[in-house]
Design a protein around this nucleic acid. Structure first.
Lengths: 313, 313
DNA sequence: TATCCTTACGGAATTCGTAAGCATG
DNA sequence: CATGCTTACGAATTCCGTAAGGATA
């Protein structure tokens, strides 16, 4: 048994049991992967993959049990590497953050600016996608941490720590009928065409819930994953916009009038997601702390509940 | 990085940082271990062992973090093997039980008899020792499960499940002054020489607590780890004996008179200990269930809280 | 001076890539 | 017949043992 065999099995499972794909992804030859998997199965005495002729069609029952263990082993192997880097190259390395557009565009810039000042030698990369992709990237290890407002709970191997809360705002053109009204109501908003986020994004589910709770059927004429796109179409007069409050910039968005809507829609919580059992580099924890000062180093270590010993600086 | 390197590091730590010992224990050459450890350290970029000249004198800080991760990896590697065996050779294999004398002599025989009937192809082995040795064997993987009454709690990586409770009995010779008294008291017992278990064994701590709580200083003239030894010396007239109630056999022990002492000494709980995160073979779980019917298969799987998927037969 | 880790070196075993084979959809 | 796993084989690498070296307590 060796680690390479475990990697081959894991990758083959991840690639929908396509061994050829797995070999390509691992930059190695397909027969090599085939042989190693065979030998691994022989050593364990059980088949991991159910084969129809020469094709893999499913995991066997022992295969399903093994894959969970294999995932944990390879996670811990990554952790060994990270511990090494943390001590050997404390302030340099790479930090991959999976997140959504709103975070990347409106929240992270100031955090990243200060992070880069403190850790100039860390190479940052942002993986942008929808919240379930964010969760997937963190779970697979492609990203170190994930930041999103939805879809980060209800996953056993994902730890989602609340970072901050925020509310939506309504934006309209200055010449819109609602522009000079007093306090907005959901009823009033529902009379006009609406532009807001796509399903799954940036608290959209809370928007839908709020309307549904009052039996309203809003006319959502356009959705986007992107606050800038929403604002652009509001400016064009296509409807009124519902966006995250952080996405309104009084300086830039002079063509729009903004109403805070914290009374109308439920409060949203943006969370930082970490893979359970993953070892976090010091600078990763520092990033989280700088993103959400409530999440102190101690609380993060406590929450991931593993690996890091108490005396680790 | 490979698994062999991890084994070398773990064994060296277990052997008090003596690499030569570790190599011997692993049936390999000492220079081979040295080289592999060096290469592993180089790959990670940190030293694991602190060296004075050419001697290992301590773990470095990263070393302390790494060793925990290494232990988990190697545990999971064992788990892979066990899953394989569980499916490939379901009803055969080896089950090692670490336990104390009282359990091995008075409690386990009937459990083992029925277990052997159900799983005739499983080779059983009993590792007998004091409770802290039991804990150590389970933690190191030398035993699959541990059964003991003391010293099994307060260890993070050990899960101790309550199996059954029991109380002590007092045994005396029929010609002893107490033989025909009514209900015994601690005061009465403390007047005579006492023979009972050694420190750490079979509820001895509860016996001491009971006397101490009443300010009594019993005259313990002889201690043994072994109920049979205790009974033998009681028969010789050296004193009165305090033993686990299960260790009294009315058939065999006709030369002794036995008083149940559940009022005098606190109740004892015998526990089954499992290493956290270890995969248990089906027959291991069956053994536990047969030892303590309260510990059903579901509750055991729940308690170890890992590895085994819900659908595992 | 005994213990114990490191270095050097050579043979054995393992790993991995290329080429060809064969079964399924 | 295209896709996709397996078999065969040879080269490169890795692993591991023996022998010798050097440092500490």
């Amino acid at each position: 048994m060796n680690l390479q065999q475990l990697r081959y099995v894991r990758e083959t499972v991840r690639r929908n049991l396509n061994l050829t794909d797995a070999a390509r992804a691992l930059h190695t030859s397909q027969p090599g992967v085939s042989k190693q998997i065979r030998e691994f199965e022989e050593e364990l005495g059980v088949d991991i993959f159910e084969r129809h002729g020469r094709r893999f069609v499913a995991l066997t029952p022992p295969g399903r049990e093994l894959i969970g263990i294999i995932d944990r082993i390879l996670l811990e192997v990554d952790n060994l590497r990270r511990v090494g880097e943390n001590y050997a190259a404390g302030d340099s390395g790479r930090l991959t953050i999976a997140t959504t557009h709103t975070q990347a565009r409106y929240v992270l810039p100031r955090v990243i600016a200060s992070f880069r000042e403190r850790y100039p030698k860390v190479r940052l990369s942002l993986q942008q996608g929808n919240p379930s992709a964010v969760a997937r990237w963190v779970l697979s290890g492609e990203a170190d941490i994930g930041i999103a407002t939805e879809s980060l709970d209800h996953l056993e191997d994902l730890i989602a720590l609340p970072a901050y809360t925020w509310t939506h705002s309504v934006v309209v053109r200055p010449d819109h009928a609602l522009a000079n009204s007093g306090a907005l109501t959901l009823q009033a908003i529902a009379e006009y065409p609406i532009i807001t986020y796509s399903k799954e994004f940036t608290g959209r589910s809370h928007i839908d819930e709020a309307f549904a709770a009052q039996g309203l059927a809003p006319d959502i004429v356009l959705t986007a994953i992107d606050s800038d796109v929403i604002k652009t179409y509001v400016e064009l007069g296509l409807g009124i916009g519902i966006i995250a409050s952080v996405a309104f910039d009084p300086e830039r968005d002079r063509q729009l009038k903004c109403f805070e809507a914290e009374q109308l829609f439920p409060i949203n919580t943006t969370r930082v997601a970490i893979r359970r059992g993953a070892y976090l580099r010091d600078f990763t924890i520092a990033f989280i702390e700088s993103f959400a000062p409530d999440l102190t180093r101690e609380r993060v270590i406590e929450a991931i509940g593993s690996n890091r010993t108490a005396d680790a600086e």
